[in-house]
Design a protein around this nucleic acid. Structure first.
Lengths: 147, 147
DNA sequence: GGTAAGCCTGTACCCAGGTACCGAATGCAA
DNA sequence: TTGCATTCGGTACCTGGGTACAGGCTTACC
């Protein structure tokens, strides 16, 4: 079996193994619109193009970095349709702000945790050590609203 | 009604409102071990110590920054028991590494997104613009394994 | 003491993101 | 051609983190 681009196709199990995901997850992503419905053998078995593995890598990465599956699906859908809308750019810009906020939060948390470690703090709420940095300095007062 | 430390107690609705959480969430956190079972009125209504609101702030912040409720619960439980184990310090150290990894991922993603914006890229997978930074440069090759 | 607001328990449900299991059909190699 | 591994579709279930009732009791205030 060969695909449009001439490369050999992959079966479900091969894709799943190479991408490190569950087979069920592939079908789930297909239902969710993240993976286009692949070609089929005469018998009905899926035959994926070889770059599906890379695509799954993109999906997993985007997801791990805070995009929901719906967001990824939309982004990919927009990509597939190829109308050169400023959509991706706009979304990327929006996401950039979100990511900056997350980085800021994480950086603040990092600092607080580093203080905890440095202060040899032993409790989150009742620490007996002097100069306890936890938890009422800045931990409670970080930016709200990007849960 | 007064609490052990002499401050006035708060009712469920007051705590929920001040902390910006749902009333049901308070009971949920109690079941999950994040909030200690509070005192009760004779009639059975919960009476929370005043610092519960701050505690909820800590919980929400920790959660938003990547700690699961179970992790927060364990941390708080350890705190309550007061045996000065190096537990918090150890966990904080571990979490520090996790947070550093996340920051690194986010920073990489930020850079990629910034490139997308700068390059006026219009597609996630088939971008026609020259110098397309998306998605097969570093997006797919970030650190795996802290989903 | 009446009454409305607030709270009680219990159970059920929601969303996201998957996983597991079923019995039947297919693929492939010996 | 036989036989075992894979895959099929469908449906049910799982975890995490909550939310939403229902039906009854308690508090607060006039």
């Amino acid at each position: 079996m060969a695909t449009a681009d001439g490369s050999a196709g992959l079966r479900t199990g091969e894709v799943a193994e190479q991408a490190g995901v569950n087979i069920q997850t592939l079908r789930y992503y297909e239902r969710r619109g993240l993976l286009a419905a692949p070609a089929r053998t005469i018998g009905g078995h899926r035959v994926y193009p070889a770059d599906t593995v890379a695509l799954l890598g993109v999906i997993k990465t985007a997801q791990r970095l805070g995009f929901t599956l719906d967001e990824v699906a939309e982004l990919l859908e927009t990509s597939r349709r190829r109308h050169p809308t400023p959509d991706l750019r706009q979304r990327a810009t929006d996401k950039l702000a979100e990511i900056d906020a997350k980085i800021a939060d994480l950086t603040a948390m990092r600092a607080a945790l580093a203080d905890v470690v440095a202060a040899r703090c032993d409790s989150l709420t009742n620490c007996t050590c002097a100069d306890c940095p936890f938890p009422f300095i800045d931990i409670s007062h970080l930016t709200e609203g990007s849960p």
